[in-house]
Amino acid sequence: MSTSALLSAPAAPRHLRAVEDIATPPVTERPAPKGLPAGTAPRGFALYVGLDELKAAADGVSLSVIVDALRRTIAELAPSAETHATVALAPVGAGGRDVDVVRLALHEPAAVARTKPEEPLDEHVPGGVTIDISRRRVHIDGETASLTFKEFELLQYLVLREGRTIERTELVSSLWSHTDGDDAPGERTIDVHVRRLRSKLGRYEDIVRTVRGIGYRFDRHADVVIRYGHGTPSPDRF
């Protein structure tokens, strides 16, 4: 990817405008973020933008214009924020989705994990829980768990968002996104699916934890192994 677009600066950069007429409570009154692992606190975020120079030019902008627009917006919303921008370079003609190429080029952990060679699955899996995302298998104390397609989808969704509490509404909209509205399950139906999933996890059922009044969260134990491999879906934090 050429960096020439970063050196050009088309006139009148466009950028988002901060919304000024929404009442924002003082920092001391804001609730703590949900679903964070114990002992952690947010310190910022990364936004991966998949867009090559030709596509940007077709939209009438360049990468430098977009970076400038984002920085201006952040400066309006949070003047104390520090920013750092970097461009992801890839060989000319590299295939794949732009955003996936960017995440890999910038060494985003989940993207890097999916490129690692798959470990051969031993015939005798040791004790504990092994969740093999790439092969869509779950082994419990060396035995294969007989999860249904939807039960594995549910477990996988939680595993890929480890430590984050997922609301029931999100589970319904994400796991039943291709279902007609009349056929989509209600939020309480999710509880039934979770109960069945837990029953098949046996003594490890508490890796799927209930967060009262919100939803569910995957909590990894020392005896839980996650195997990702190629083709692992990409979780979206926001």
Rank of each mutant, 00 (worst) to 15 (best):
Met1Arg: 10
Ala5Phe: 07
Leu7Cys: 07
Ser8Leu: 01
Ala9Gly: 06
Ala9Cys: 08
Pro10Met: 02
Ala12Glu: 11
Pro13Gln: 03
Arg14Thr: 08
Glu20Ser: 12
Ile22Lys: 00
Glu29Gln: 14
Ala32Ser: 15
Pro33Ser: 13
Lys34Val: 13
Gly35Trp: 08
Leu36Ile: 14
Pro37His: 09
Pro37Glu: 15
Gly39Pro: 12
Gly39Asn: 11
Ala41Trp: 15
Phe45Ser: 12
Ala46Ile: 14
Ala46Arg: 15
Gly50Ile: 11
Glu53Asp: 13
Lys55Ile: 07
Asp59Tyr: 07
Asp59Ile: 00
Ser62Val: 06
Ser64Pro: 04
Ile66Gly: 04
Asp68Ile: 04
Asp68Trp: 07
Ala69Asn: 06
Leu70Trp: 05
Ala75Val: 10
Ala78Tyr: 14
Pro79Asn: 01
Glu82Ser: 15
His84Thr: 14
Val87Pro: 03
Pro91Arg: 07
Gly95Asp: 05
Gly96Asp: 00
Asp100Cys: 00
Val101Gln: 02
Arg103Gly: 01
Arg103Tyr: 03
Arg103Gln: 06
His107Thr: 03
His107Trp: 02
His107Glu: 12
Glu108Ile: 00
Ala110Cys: 02
Ala113Ile: 07
Ala113Asn: 09
Arg114Glu: 12
Leu121Arg: 05
Asp122Arg: 08
Glu123Met: 12
Val125Tyr: 12
Pro126Ala: 03
Gly128Ser: 02
Asp132Gly: 05
Asp132Lys: 04
Asp132Tyr: 00
Arg136Met: 06
His139Cys: 13
Gly142Phe: 13
Glu143Arg: 14
Ser146Val: 02
Leu147Tyr: 01
Leu147Arg: 10
Leu147His: 02
Lys150Asp: 07
Glu151Asn: 02
Leu160Asp: 03
Leu160Met: 09
Glu162Asp: 04
Gly163Tyr: 08
Thr169Trp: 06
Ser173Lys: 00
Ser173Cys: 04
Ser174Arg: 01
Ser177Asp: 02
His178Gly: 11
Asp180Lys: 15
Asp180Trp: 10
Ala184Gln: 08
Glu187Gly: 05
Thr189Tyr: 08
Asp191Pro: 01
His193Ser: 00
Lys200Trp: 06
Lys200Asn: 01
Arg203Tyr: 12
Tyr204Gly: 10
Glu205Pro: 03
Asp206Trp: 10
Arg209Ser: 11
Ile214Trp: 06
Tyr216Ile: 02
Phe218Leu: 00
Asp219Met: 10
Ala222Thr: 15
Ala222Val: 14
Asp223Ala: 08
Val224Met: 01
His230Ala: 15
Thr232Ile: 04
Pro235Phe: 09
Arg237Ile: 14
Arg237Val: 11
Arg237Ser: 09
